[in-house]
Design a protein around this nucleic acid. Structure first.
Lengths: 184, 184
DNA sequence: ACAGCCATGTAACTCGTTACATGATTAC
DNA sequence: GTAATCATGTAACGAGTTACATGGCTGT
């Protein structure tokens, strides 16, 4: 009965619960806008592979577009049920953070404080960029972000992401200070 | 010249730069204490595989223990050089966060606010646990955590981690409030 | 005409995991 | 004696990536 699926399958399936049918290509775009910030945005090729698997399991079905070339995917009643079961019967795992900057900071003694501060500064710049990207996503939800509206929950997640970026920025500033004292 | 290595190789190599030689088993333990919080702690089997590869490249060398059965690994001069080059010549990638709770929150509309609040509460409990584990690690560094001391940089990373956990706790509390209004 | 985007898919490969196998040493 | 921990390794597998291949449609 319902063999295990990787979390990414549920993630993609979840992106199909917002009331519209998507092509593989569009699904990838939606993943790039949302999933990317707190999961992964799977490669194009994997999106198609995953859609094939989900279709095979009857969790989505292809609704051939008029033109026939491209097909859109719609979540089935069974797919929705499967998602609901996953949500309510399996405990959420703890997050995994793969943070190259933290990893490099750990061995900062190999290159010294000055070099490490420079790395943190570069990271702050990238962080600001990412924050702006997410900010744009968040703005696009304004007006549809009530909890009774389709994008209420996505809005919560986006706000979470923004606070995460802000907190990291503040923390890095403090680390930078501590390292700076060393440099002078 | 020096083919690409996965980041995890550099991570393990980096754990050998703190002045002691470790067995594969001990290396795994160190990874569990530190790496785990902002990278991954590789499986035991992968630690041995990785040590084999690093030894093959001359980046670590096995210093056979007296008894002969177990061997300790020491980073070589070349290994140190390789790490330094990696730090200074390749830009740090942006972090990847795989956050099942955020993912589930995204599709909270499938199960409703009440169920979602319960999930956040469970997450807060786990978060507190993890924080405590990291706190213990941090405490074990006290006294050796000056920036001129061997564990100065690891201490910075641990403090970063603690602030990250605290910030997430605060954010979740706010999300919980917003969802709570809905529930009443 | 050409660039860029829309659209789909296969093949080869790497990373990393779990399962399995083995055996010594230490603590109770 | 027996359970837990120390210690090392192989094999099978899965998830996900990059590279490759193909072709239509749209705007300039």
């Amino acid at each position: 009965m319902s063999q295990a699926l990787p979390t990414t399958s549920f993630a993609l399936l979840g992106l199909l619960t917002f009331g519209d049918d998507l092509t593989g290509y569009e699904l990838k775009q939606r993943a790039d806008r949302t999933l990317r910030f707190y999961w992964v945005s799977p490669a194009m090729s994997q999106v198609y592979t995953e859609l094939g698997r989900l279709a095979g399991l009857g969790l989505v079905k292809a609704t051939g577009d008029k033109d026939g070339r491209t097909s859109r995917y719609r979540i089935t009643r069974r797919g929705r049920e499967r998602l609901r079961t996953w949500l309510s019967e399996t405990p959420a795992e703890f997050q995994t953070l793969k943070h190259p900057v933290a990893l490099r900071l750990l061995i900062g003694h190999l290159v010294g404080a000055e070099h490490t501060v420079a790395m943190l500064d570069r990271h702050l710049a990238v962080l600001a960029q990412r924050r702006q990207e997410l900010e744009r996503v968040r703005e696009s939800l304004v007006g549809r972000d009530g909890l009774d509206q389709p994008f209420g929950y996505p809005a919560l997640v986006a706000d979470w992401g923004l606070e995460y970026f802000d907190a990291e920025r503040d923390t890095i500033h403090r680390l930078r200070e501590r390292l700076g004292e060393q440099t002078q």
